[in-house]
Design a protein around this nucleic acid. Structure first.
Lengths: 248, 248
DNA sequence: TCGGCGCTTTGACCTAAATCAAACTGAAAG
DNA sequence: CTTTCAGTTTGATTTAGGTCAAAGCGCCGA
């Protein structure tokens, strides 16, 4: 029904192209106008909390630039990241009153927000918007289930390799092929954030990153800049099926 | 927009009340008729595979009776359950060609299926169906993220307690309060299935169930019948916030 | 130029859960 | 009534990853 590349076929119309591409690739002019009317931007500094779990959340939004995380925290402080939001990702729960997770800006962040009430009204009048949102939510559910396999069954080394592969693949903006065909990118997360993503401690993350470096799977330039000389080699370390990670 | 108890306000109309309640609480007569026309039932025996990951899946369905699981398997056999389907749960991916996970009947299973093509057509004509499905998918996403916290950060004992609490709460059909206020239910999973749910080995599951029994948190009658004398006591063992598990 | 302070690395040690192995239980089949 | 066998329990041992502790490394601001 909806082409998988719909994210990339959007018309740029106004100040928030990503947003429109993300949700409204098939919007007609009047719907785009509605969106224009109810949208606004918010900026956050690195480290700032966007919203706390349980707080009233009267908007939905998409990330324009920067990175945000969704995390859950237990009473004694154990933390688990449950979502990683890169540019063009959607956040918000149409039909829900409150936030279910802490949302935090891990880098400087700009979000394009839409007041929830009018957004929901538009949704109920425009079937393909609800369908598009369903589509995106199913994608997130797939990602969450892939993540569950990682958390439940992968070794620390496999977890690290998987995370590097995910970031390298998903964050197309940062991903580059240099002359020799290496994949190059900057880690947008601290060791602690990686640990919260992977269900590890930051020490274990550090050790396994060092091990991958020692074994030549990655080259570290500084603490954050990663060079992957051979992406297939990295993929072998993830423990995933070798069919290129195609979600079948 | 949608009342949270919508699952319980449905009209019983014909042979598949659960199905209609799950997706069509607000359907008008002609939509129900459409559903009646495209629905059919399938039965599976305990242990049978409903569909393999990667197979073409040309239906969506809801569980009528019995229990099904979604699992992912790594090349070397490590398995992680990523979904547990109880009666009234929905399975299927509108807009997707193929199954993303193995779906297996863990007990005898009856599903009410709808051919995907006409179902999708109805969806695009009937905004509230797409919205309802979005609603349900968001619920699943919440459950998946709760599950991620469990997999990433909980101890074996907390995992077991959490699973028992989830089953006791979620499977309202099996849940009973007896004279003394105990919660009583039958475990619908083997130790191995519990292990695949929790990211543990079956031996660890067995040991921790024994430990909870030794400590009086649960009483075991046979291998499968569980009595929880004090549900709050069980909840304390889960590591979850004490506010009754309300998803805020 | 120098502290100071996040962030990271590395080392020594410990422990929760995995692994390996054996025995037990109970229901179904003969 | 016995056998069988899937599912389960329990014990002994190992190990991956956690915990605690101490440096190391930039980078920013004074």
């Amino acid at each position: 029904m909806t082409a998988p590349d719909i994210l990339n076929v959007g018309h740029d119309c106004g100040a928030c192209p990503i947003r429109h591409r993300a949700v409204c690739a098939r919007c007609e002019a009047d719907e785009l106008q509605t969106l224009e009317q109810i949208k606004y931007y918010r900026s956050y500094q690195a480290g700032q909390t966007v919203i706390w779990s349980g707080d009233r959340m009267d908007f939905v939004a998409s990330v324009v630039t920067g990175i945000a995380t969704l995390t859950q925290t237990m009473e004694d402080g154990r933390r688990q990241m449950v979502g990683l939001l890169l540019p063009s990702d959607f956040v918000g729960r149409p039909g829900r009153q409150t936030a279910a997770y802490d949302v935090t800006a891990t880098t400087d962040l700009v979000m394009c927000c839409f007041r929830k009430k009018p957004f929901e009204e538009m949704m109920s009048k425009t079937p393909h918007v609800a369908q598009r949102l369903l589509e995106m939510t199913l994608d997130e559910l797939d990602a969450a289930r892939e993540w569950m396999l990682l958390l439940g069954r992968k070794t620390a080394r496999e977890k690290i390799a998987s995370l590097l592969a995910i970031i390298a693949r998903r964050d197309a903006h940062l991903k580059l092929k240099n002359a020799k065909g290496s994949t190059v990118f900057d880690l947008p997360l601290t060791r602690e954030e990686m640990a919260d993503y992977l269900g590890l401690t930051l020490e274990t993350v550090s050790r396994q990153v060092s091990a991958l470096k020692r074994d030549g799977v990655i080259v570290l330039e500084g603490k954050r800049h990663i060079v992957v000389p051979n992406f297939d080699r990295l993929m072998e370390e993830t423990g995933d099926d070798s069919d290129g990670g195609m979600l079948v």
